[in-house]
Nucleic acid binder design. Sequence first.
DNA 1: CGTTTCACG
DNA 2: GACGTACGTGAAACGT
Length: 958
Amino acid sequence: MTNIDTDESSAGNNNQRPNHLYLIDGSAYIFRAYHRLPPLTNIHGEPVGAVYGYTSMLWKLADDLHAADGPTHMAVVLDKSSKSFRNDIYDQYKANRPPAPEDLRPQFPMIRDATNAFSLPLIEEENVEADDMIASYTKAAIAAGWRVTIVSSDKDLMQLIEPVEDSRVDMLDTMKNARIGDAGVRAKFDVGPDKVGDVLALMGDSADNVPGVPGVGPKTASKLINEFGDLESVLAAAPEMKKSKMRENLIEHSDKARLSKILVTLKDDCPLPIALEDMPLRDIPPEPLAEFLTYHGFNSLLKRIGQLSDVSAANKAIAGTRGADHDKVKIDAAGAIMAGQAAKPPEMPPINIDDYVMVTDAEDLQKWVDRARAIGHFAFDTETDSLEAVTANLIGFSMAITAGEACYVPLAHGGTDLLAQRPEMVEMKTALDIIRPLLADDSVLKIGQNLKYDKLVLAQHDIIINNIDDTMVMSFNLDAGKHGHGMDELAKRHLGHECISYKSLTGTGKKQISFAEVPVEDATKYAAEDADVTLRLWQHLKLRLPAEGASKIYQMVDRPLVDVIAKMEGEGILVDREKLAKLSHDFAGEMARLEQEIYAIAGEEFTLGSPKQLGEILFGKMGLKGGKKGKSGQFSTDVTVLEDLASNGVEIAQKILDWRQLAKLKSTYTDALQAQINPKTGRVHTSYSLVGAQTGRLSSTDPNLQNIPIRTEIGRQIRHAFVADKGNVILAADYSQIELRLAAHIANIAPLKEAFEAGEDIHARTAQELFGEVTRESRGRAKTINFAILYGISRWGLAKRLEVTPDEAQAMIDIYFARFPGISAYIQETTTRVKECEYTETLFGRKTHFPRINSSNGAERQGSERAAINAPIQGTCADIIKRAMARMVPALQHAGLGDVKMLLQVHDELVFECPQDKIDAASKVINDVMANAALPYLTLSIPLGVDIGTGASWGEAH
DNA sequence: CGTTTCACG
DNA sequence: GACGTACGTGAAACGT
């Protein structure tokens, strides 16, 4: 891990610091990459594992470039031929090397292409080894007063490090992400860098066929050198040593040792083919690099091209604004620059809950508001009596102006109970009138943790919050997959602070009290702390956003969505209560009938909803076959098991399946939804979480409106209960096959792209490619395989789904990969990359972290691998529909369709409530916005198809 | 509070 | 040799 100061002392005086030359030992890297990476092939079928590894390594360095003491000059050094002066003095030198593997040889010229693609100078001289060239350049650079970093892990090169604590030469091992200086050499060889040659001469090097002295290995060699000083002294002292095999060997093989010394000593006076000054590091021109990446289909790198400059700009911004604070910016395994959790947060006074102020009169409040306006930003938080924003009552609010400077404004403590003692408070209306203009002011930034909630609560009081930053969303854009994004967790992680728990104030369970009943003194500590912590978190996270390349997704996609989602939740959707009640009643009747039949067959009554009891009845008492026990030792009774029984004519199984379906529909939907109708609005208001799904999708709770039934006719009836208000229709617009389209684009699957371009039935096309014919059967299988591919396939998983043997499933996978070579390249490239940097990215740069991708637990690791294959596709889909949503509101407004309301999002579908006379106009706008949502940032190689339907209910609109 | 099942994309 | 085999979610019910 490399720590680089970005404070003023180093970043602020770039002009004065010495030139810094990075010398990349390209040849050594190729071999390591070749052996370390799986045998990847590019889209042309050429082996490119080593090329990919090499390209990734250069990429990492490109990030390093922008560090404060990063390179000013850079060059790649390659071996041109296998011969050098060493072969003239010792014909056995490197003679034991096997020839390069067949699939590595064609990669050597590609390494040159890669180097050229990065517009880096390439040094390769006939009859000169790369090591000697590196030694010569190092010597010249040091003589000129420069610093040198050798990008290699070759131990021979360690001789070039200066034997002092602050060596001007160091080595960088990009695979281990380690920097090696004088101390690193001593740790490895137990001698200083200047004695490494002597140690190597004694121990020899089997890889290069350097003989050394028989019987002397690294331990003995360093011991001898430390005792006698250098090789010649060791050899001279040998006759005086006490009699041993080692003494004999030292005497007998002294010539070999001297020869070895010559062989390992680097030649540092080679003529320099390019002058030092002629390899300055410039911005990397994107075109040649893009061309190279495109040719090989290195798509994940390709789409990150923009970041090379992004990172540069972001880092400069940090160096410029940070000034006095001493944060470290470090380079992680991926080379992404992170000011991570390990970094100390910006310096702030400690959190002291006794410093917080309670504001109880209007003049005081006005002073806080004026101060917030003067500073231009503040943290804000509302306190209410409910988690449900649409119905929650406002109890008070808190503000934090600077770290530690926070207040709470109680508004409705003591409740409405006339007997209760009401504490002194600013009158609600007065207080709201004072903060309303501030919250609406576009020039003052409002910082909050999940501000969507506060927006909804305050919307009840005609307060609009403009210009926001949301720490929860910021955290999600930085750390999705690493940890949760709740405030308490973030405070602990980033500030080392344990927040006062809500429960400690209100209690839990039966005894729980409303926040309005919490004493104002306690409420002040709690609420002001929330605002204070939010402000501190913001100061921490806002620095990380640009440094870690997360600004784009935050600013372009997720931040604008907070307003949009709040608006949708506030609208809610109209639900036909009578329809649901009737369904509940019908389901209950049918369930009762089935229940009796089931008990009759089973011969006893039992709890039908208990999988445990059911399993015992079926496989124990009735002795049916096909019982599988899971790890809990319980019989499984899930659909696959019951369907299996049913298809074998087991009557009870089908009845249980039917009962189960009804029980599910009734409890989860028809009963529950009625209870979710908001009494104030008469509509159902779901709550969307912007941070709920690691891939960037939304999730929906209370109630979940993203899993309303559709697949079965009986379940589908529930959709008919979601209706439009008078004079309106429900308009449902969904992306057609968007995940497959994006997979075709991202993995560059030519036949699928053609099919989408031509508007073909994609599963039929897949069936044609795979099985040579399109039948109902083959199309169904093709559909299953298509989805399996998106999810990271395994032969066993596919076998289970298709009810074939794993071997047959594997055969289908093989054919699929052969017909669509892009997909296997994508899978290989994605898994390789995620193993290196532990995150994936969408086309819009959204990161999802996979901290368990290198787990030693196989199941855990493979699970992460499959998720990582899926994440860029699912995540890009989420990005696209989110962009469509953010643009939809102004687009409708602009078209004079402000009364068309966006109500729901279901991953690839948007549901609107639309005045009957505006269906055509709205359809056009909605289609336009959705189909073009990727533009202009991203031009896809496939069209995005949108299907739109309308009807009196959601069910009819499909 | 964990497990099982099942609703959706 | 076992693990457990499709990705992402949330809700309800059971049973400890």
